[in-house]
Design a protein around this nucleic acid. Structure first.
Lengths: 204, 204
DNA sequence: TTTTATCCGTACCATATGGTACGCCTCTCC
DNA sequence: GGAGAGGCGTACCATATGGTACGGATAAAA
C-alpha cells in the first residue's frame, strides 16, 4: 500500500508545483498527468474529479503542516520558548510559497468548499493547541487575564500583521529572511505581554 | 461624456456583482454582456480584453475606497478620534464583500499583475496617509517613539487580526456587526498605546 | 432629411479543458 | 508460465469561453 501512497504524494506534489507556478488556472488535468507521468484516467479514478484533486491537496498539506506545528508545540519544556518557537514556525509557514499557493486557490474557489476545508483542517486544528498553550502561560504567570480566543487573535495580529495579505497579493519585498522569524515572534510575544500584563498579586 | 462614464460604471458594477456571486470563474464576457445589456464588442472595445476588465474594476474600486479613506482621515479635528474612525472604516472596508471579492480575484491572478495593482492603488495610497497621521499623533504625545511603518503594521495587526484571512476563506461567523467596528478600532488603538507608550519626559 | 458614428444582439470561430474510452504494457498472484 | 488487474499513453468528445464579424437600430450631427 505504501507504494501507492507514495505515488499519490508525488502526484499531489506536482499539483502543488503547478499551483505555485501559475495559479489555479495553470492546474489542468492534462498537465498534471503529463508532469506526473500518469494517465488522466488514473487521476479521475483516484480523485473523482478535478475538485477532488484540490481537496486532496488541501487535506494532505494541512495534515503535514499540522504535524509540523504539533511537533513545534510539544518539543520544548519552557512555555515561553515553546510559544515563541511556535509563533516563528507559524509565521514561516504562513508566508511560505506552498501555503500561499494553497490559500490562493482556496480563496478563489467559488463554492467556498476549499476555504471551509482549509479553515477546518488548518486553523481549526492548530488554534486549539495554541489556546491550550496560552492557558498554561496564564497559569505560570507569563500572561495576564483574558479569554484564550482573544489572546490568540491578538498574538496572531501582532505576529503576522499585514505580511500574509501582502504576500498573498504577490508582494515579495516584505518577507522576513529565514533567521528573522524567531526574532519577530519574540517581539510579538513581548508585546502580547504588554497588552495582557500579569497583575502583581497574581504572581504570588 | 459623463453618460459614457456612467455606463462604464454600470458595467463594472455588474462585474463586481458576478465576482461576488461566483468568484473569478463566473465572470465571463458573455455573462457581463448579457446582464449589463451591452454587446461583447463594446466590452472589448472599451477594455481591450478580459484582463483589462479586471484591471479597470480594481482601479475603479481602489479609487472609490481611497476617496472614502481620505474623507475619513480628514474630517475630524481630534487626532485620536480621526485615527479610531479611520481604523473602523478600514476594518469595515477590508471585511466587506466587495473588497473580499476583488482581493480574491487579485490573489488568484496567475500573472500577479492584479495583485500589484491592488497593492499600488490600495495600500500604496492609504498607508502613507495613516503614517502621516501617526506622525502627528507622535507630535501630540499620543503615541511614543517608533518608526511610522512599524507602528502602522502593528496597528493593522491589532485591528484586523486574522479577520481578513478568515473572511477571505469564506468564514462568515467572525465578521463584526456594523456597530462594533468603532469599538474594535478603539481597543486596537489603546493597545497600540501600550506597545508604544509615551515617555513621561516627552509629555512636557 | 441624410449621413455618420455608436452600440446592441446574434451568430460565428478557434481553442482549451474536463471527462471518457481503448489498446497495450507491466507486474503480481496463482 | 499463464491470467488478471492496474496503470500508462493517446485519442476522442462535448462543452464553454475568449475573441471577432456583421447587420440593424438609434440618435446626434450636417
Amino acid at each position: 500500500m505504501t507504494i501507492r501512497d507514495e505515488r499519490r504524494r508525488q502526484i499531489l506534489a506536482v499539483v502543488l508545483d503547478l499551483l505555485r507556478e501559475g495559479g489555479t488556472a495553470s492546474v489542468t488535468t492534462a498537465r498534471i498527468a503529463a508532469r506526473a507521468r500518469c494517465s488522466k484516467e488514473t487521476l479521475y479514478s483516484w480523485f473523482g474529479d478535478r475538485d477532488g484533486i484540490f481537496r486532496a491537496l488541501v487535506e494532505a498539506q494541512s495534515a503535514q503542516l499540522n504535524a509540523m506545528m504539533t511537533r513545534e508545540l510539544a518539543a520544548h519544556a519552557d512555555c515561553t520558548t515553546t510559544m515563541v518557537r511556535a509563533g516563528a514556525a507559524l509565521l514561516d509557514l504562513l508566508t511560505g510559497e506552498a501555503s500561499l499557493a494553497i490559500n490562493r486557490s482556496a480563496m478563489a474557489d467559488g463554492s467556498g468548499e476549499l476555504g471551509a476545508l482549509l479553515l477546518q483542517h488548518g486553523r481549526g486544528r492548530t488554534a486549539p493547541q495554541i489556546k491550550a498553550l496560552i492557558g498554561t502561560l496564564q497559569e505560570e504567570g507569563r500572561i495576564g487575564e483574558g479569554e484564550a480566543t482573544e489572546i490568540f487573535q491578538t498574538f496572531y495580529g501582532l505576529l503576522v500583521g499585514d505580511r500574509q495579505i501582502r504576500a498573498l497579493l504577490g508582494d515579495k519585498s516584505g518577507r522576513p529572511r529565514p533567521g528573522e522569524f524567531e526574532e519577530l515572534s519574540r517581539k510579538a510575544f513581548e508585546r502580547l505581554q504588554k497588552i495582557f500584563p500579569v497583575k502583581v498579586n497574581e504572581m504570588a
